[in-house]
């Protein structure tokens, strides 16, 4: 029962963070929402008993991809549709 509740909460959080990722105009916040999505999907992998995939998803998806996005935002501009 508790497993089902955690499962449903994680799935709802996945959908919310995915929608937030594409609706934020602040690109830094969108990158962080994408990192939260990766972290939640690694929790989902762990619940589905795939700890190998969970570790690599948490390291690469939540850590390195967010870092690369933040570096790219630092090099360009922070808000969507902003002119130079």
């Amino acid at each position: 029962m508790i497993e089902l509740v955690v499962h449903v909460l994680v799935l709802i959080g996945l959908i919310i963070s995915a929608v937030l990722t594409i609706t934020f105009k602040d690109l830094l916040a969108a990158a962080l929402a994408s990192g939260v999505f990766s972290l939640l999907i690694s929790v989902e992998f762990y619940i589905l008993q795939a700890p190998d995939v969970a570790i690599s998803q948490a390291a690469v998806g939540a850590g390195l991809t967010t870092a690369i996005f933040i570096i790219a935002i630092r090099a360009t501009q922070r808000f969507e549709g902003e002119t130079e």
């Binding site: 700890p51 190998d52 570790i55 390291a59 690469v60 850590g63």
Partner: peptide, 12 residues
């Protein structure tokens, strides 16, 4: 885990 996962954690 394994080589790829551990290396990715260290790189993080």
């Amino acid at each position: 885990g394994g080589g790829f996962q551990g290396g990715a954690v260290v790189a993080t």
